[in-house]
Structure formats: C-alpha cells, structure tokens
Design a protein around this nucleic acid. Structure first.
Length: 497
RNA sequence: GCCCCCAUCGUCUAGAGGCCUAGGACGCCGCCCUUUCAAGGCGGAGAUCACCGGUUCGAAUCCGGUUGGGGGUACCA
C-alpha cells in the first residue's frame, strides 16, 4: 500500500559528510522504508561562501556508500535529477523563495529591516549589558512609507524579517511528546532574506518542505528551538504543519555535541580507516535506537523491518569507537570470501603506494590468506598489521629476536636446529600439518618448550610477537623466504654476539 | 543571562506500576582452548535506576521540586 509519508535529508555542502548528518539521513531512510514512504534528498547550498562542489560530492557519495538511497534528489554525483518537485538544490529554487517572500511582504507578515550589522551588534551588546535576553528590538517593524523611502534612497536594500506573533507554539514531537515554546523567547522578528537577496535557512527549509509535501521532519535535537519558527512560517505560508521528530544528538566522549575538534566526524575518514558500511550503519542505528530485543548485529534490511521512531531514545548518546570496532570485526567475520577480498584489496594497494609494504598482494594471495587473517581484523586497514610481514622486508633487531626465557646463545642454537630441520623438509610437502611434526620432534629431542622455539621462529620470520598461527605463516612465506629470514636472523644474532 | 531538552552499570541500551534481589552488549578482570595474537566458550566485578518529596497495597517505571548534563540563543545551516 503506497504511503503519503514523505521525509527528507537536507544536507548543507559546507563540509564533508558528518556522522550526525549520516545518522539523521539513516533515521529518515529507516522511517521511510519501514512505512513505505518516500525519502528525498535536498541540497541546502544557500551559504554560497562556504558551499563547494567537492563537499557535495563527498556527502552524496558517502550516503550512497552507506547504502542510504533516496527516491527523489538532485542531479549530482553521477545521478539524474529525479522526482516531481525538482529542482532539489536550493540555489536553483531562488525564485520560489523570492515569490514566497513577496507573498509574506504583501500580507504584511514580513517587513523590510534596514538595520546594519553594526547597529544590530550594538543593540545586541546593549541588551547583554542590561542582562536582557538577546532579541531584535523591532525598530524597523513599523516604518512608514516615507521612512522606508529614505533608507532606500541611502542605498540600503534591507533584509526581510518575519513578524513573530505573540503566543505559544506547540507540537507533538514523535520522540519527546508535547513541546511548547512561547514565541516571546524566539529572539524577536527574525531575518528570512538577507539584504543581498539571499534567503536564509529558516525560510528556505520551510518553503521547500511545504513545496515538496514533506509530512515528517526528522532531525537532530539541536533544531528543537528552531521548530517554533518553522511552524510559524508554515502557518504564514498557509501550509499544513508537518509532524516533527527530534533525534537525540551524537555526543563526543565527554558528553558535548559531537565536533570535529573532539572526535573524528567525517564519514570519509571512517571509510579510509577500513570500517565497513554494515558496521557503520549498524552502529549508527543503535545510537539512540534499539529493537527492544537482545540482537546487536543487524543488517540494514533487518533494521528497516524493526525500526520504530517511538522507540528512539530521548537522551544523547556518546560515540564509542571501541564498540564500533567490535561491530566492525563482527561484520568482517560475516562477509563472504570474495566480498572481503574485494574490500581488502584497496587497502593493501594503498599501503603499497604509501610505502608501508613493498609489494601489494594479488587477489588470489589474499583469498588464500583469509583463514589466517579474518578473525584478527578489526578494520580492513589492519590487514597490514596482521599480515604485513609477508609483503615487507625485515631488518632483524637482535634484542627483539629473543623469546622471554631464551638468551642469545640459546636462540641461536634453537634457530639453527630449526633451520636445519626445515631445510631438510621435503619442499613438496611444505604444508602446515607437515611442518609441525618435525619441529615438535626437535623440541622433544632437545627438551625445550615448544612455545619458546616457536616464538623464536615467529620473531625471526615475521619480526612480530603476535601473528597468525606459525605453521600457516611459514607456508604463506614459502620455503625460500622462510629459510632466508632464518639466516638473516641468525646473522643478526651472530653479529650481536 | 534567557529559552528548551534530557537523566538506568565507565559506554550503548532493555525496561511502558508488581515478571527487577534491574537483563543484554562493548570495555575491563579471571578461567578454558592454545605455539603467540586473535576468535570462540565459561565465569566475575560493575547501576542503592541522579537526589528529595508525593501518588499507590506496590515505582526504575506516574506527578512535583532540586541537582547535574546537554542544546539553542546569527543578515550560518
């Protein structure tokens, strides 16, 4: 059954895709998909000074990467402009706002204000000194035609202010029930169109939400105090007021509103660090919402099925990177081989380009390695921590080659014997379960602890104390490189002694 | 300052008057598995449900106040 529910995400291309925007987009998407409604994307690019095409691209690409798709939206990032209410970019809708502003002016619901920024600043300052709440005095609210003409003659264009009517504005918020705010606390008549003719956010958002038949406005809690202004504008425009739902904020670890300064906020950075879309979406969905069951690893589709705005938390949620990493590990373990390899390849390639490894592995090589690395990856990028020794040259550090209980002489003895045993091993059966018995036998014969010998070999052939299982590592390395690295380690130890 | 929102383990949360001596997950600590690291299994510590007062036979759940935290106070979005 088709639904007339229409929701939107309206990002402003003044920065890269922010986690908060992605989360708001996700909740709108979930609500739309769950109810069979329509989800649209509108670009709010009226802040010309700060908006860029590169940010636009980053935002749209990021949302798509996450799997958040819209039914109507602008023609950018390789997309066709789509939907019955085009254009979906505010700078292409200026005449719509101009017409709406004219209408409000004509009905005397708005007026021109000729105050200069300096005058406004002085006014603000005086009120602050007098300990009065910040508000516009309304000095231009009742100018006569002559006074207006005088200002215009001076060359002043005048901004357009909306007349805020006295009274209380209230709404039934989807997540926090009844909210009421006295318009006396709105700061006076507010500007809807700048003196330079550019419309402002509060105005464009309402004009567009009205024009695009938005039924539910789902956005961050930081907009609660803007909502009365928007309701007033909807009423002035003669348009039904949509239903509002204010989501709890994503917080820095210290509990303040998430910011670039205290947290990593760009989705692109999480992508670059090897977080999967599944983990990110899963994590965002569970920040402020929960299915009410004990499930914690869910696909986007499963979340869509269970999503309910009324189960959204009211209080803000701190961003917990450790939990995200755990979820990421969960998802990495769930991906099928081909998928995981395809996602890993860009990271090994990038590491090679960056010089972190000297050679990027092939698809086949990575596929063969999967059983060794999969459960050790917390991010895709950590592949080079887990298996980088395979694609890197080692420079043995004698001190770092010694197992806890072994000194240099002991280690030389152990590695020499191990090298001999491995060199004597049939190259044709260079396989993990073939390599283990001879080394175990050696340990037995010499009365060593298996762990000590294995650690000595591990350090010698990988340069690390933490690696995938040793015999699998020797196989991945191959006979020649294994023996060569043992020789190098022995040489380093000999030089030190 | 003024307005508004919020308040359950360190963190994310379950909980819509009796099922709660408050459940799950992350993290932390043990144990098991084990050649290291992970993963996995098992167990543990961790919340007098911010506080005070009310309503009720009974409150984490309802009401009021206090405190604390957060958000907003632009010719930014």
């Amino acid at each position: 059954m088709p639904s007339d529910i229409r929701v939107r995400i309206a990002p402003s291309p003044t920065g890269p895709l922010h986690i908060g925007t992605a989360r708001a987009a996700l909740f709108n998407y979930l609500f739309a998909r769950h109810t069979g409604g329509t989800f649209l994307l509108r670009l709010e690019d009226t802040d010309v000074a700060r908006s860029t095409a590169a940010y636009e691209r980053d935002i749209l690409d990021g949302l798509h990467w996450l799997g958040i798709t819209w039914d109507e939206g602008p023609g950018v990032a390789g997309l066709e402009e789509a939907g019955p209410y085009a254009p979906y970019r505010q700078m292409q809708r200026l005449d719509t706002y101009a017409a709406a502003a004219e209408e409000l002016l004509a009905k005397d619901l708005a007026y021109r204000c000729y105050c200069t920024p300096d005058e406004l600043a002085a006014e603000r300052h005086d009120r602050e000194v007098a300990k009065l709440p910040a508000a516009y005095s309304g000095r231009c609210a009742r100018l006569s035609a002559d006074e207006r003409a005088a200002f215009e003659a001076e060359g002043r264009r005048g901004a357009i202010r909306f007349r805020v009517r006295p009274g209380v504005v209230g709404w039934n918020d989807l997540v926090r029930d009844r909210v009421e705010i006295d318009t006396a606390n709105l700061g006076g008549d507010f500007v809807i169109v700048r003196a330079d003719g550019n419309p402002l956010y509060h105005f464009t958002v309402v004009v567009d939400d009205a024009a695009m038949q938005i039924s539910h406005v789902i956005r961050g809690e930081d907009h609660i105090s803007n909502t009365p202004k928007h309701i007033l504008l909807f009423e002035a425009l003669g348009h039904p007021v949509p239903v509002f739902g204010h989501l709890p904020l994503i917080l820095n670890p210290d509990g303040t509103k998430m910011s670039k300064r205290k947290s990593q906020t760009a989705v692109a950075d999480y992508i670059a660090q090897g977080f999967t879309r599944e983990a990110l979406v899963n994590y965002f969905a569970f920040l402020g919402w929960s299915p009410g069951t004990e499930d914690d690893v869910l696909t986007l589709e499963e979340v869509v099925e269970r999503f309910d705005l009324e189960k959204v938390q009211k209080g803000g949620a701190r961003f917990d990177r450790e939990r995200l990493e755990w979820l990421n590990g969960q998802w990495i373990r769930r991906l099928d081989d081909a998928d995981l390899v395809a996602r890993l390849l860009p990271f090994t390639d990038a590491a090679a380009v960056a010089g972190q490894i000297v050679r990027a592995p092939s698809e086949e090589e990575l596929t063969a390695l999967l059983p060794l690395v999969r459960e050790r990856l917390s991010t895709l990028a950590s592949i080079t921590d887990v298996a980088g020794f395979l694609w890197r040259d080692l420079s043995p550090d004698p001190a770092a080659l010694l197992p806890k209980r072994w000194d240099a002489a002991m280690t030389i003895d152990g590695l020499t014997a191990a090298r001999e045993a491995l060199a004597a091993h049939d190259p044709v059966t260079w396989e993990a379960d073939e390599l283990e018995p001879p080394l175990r036998a050696l340990v037995e014969a010499r009365g060593w602890r298996a762990g000590d010998l294995f650690m000595a070999i591990r350090m010698a052939v990988t340069g690390q104390a933490a690696t995938p299982p040793l015999f699998d590592v020797l196989v991945a390395l191959g006979r020649d490189r294994t023996l060569a690295r043992l020789d190098d380690a022995l040489a380093a130890l000999g030089a030190a002694g």
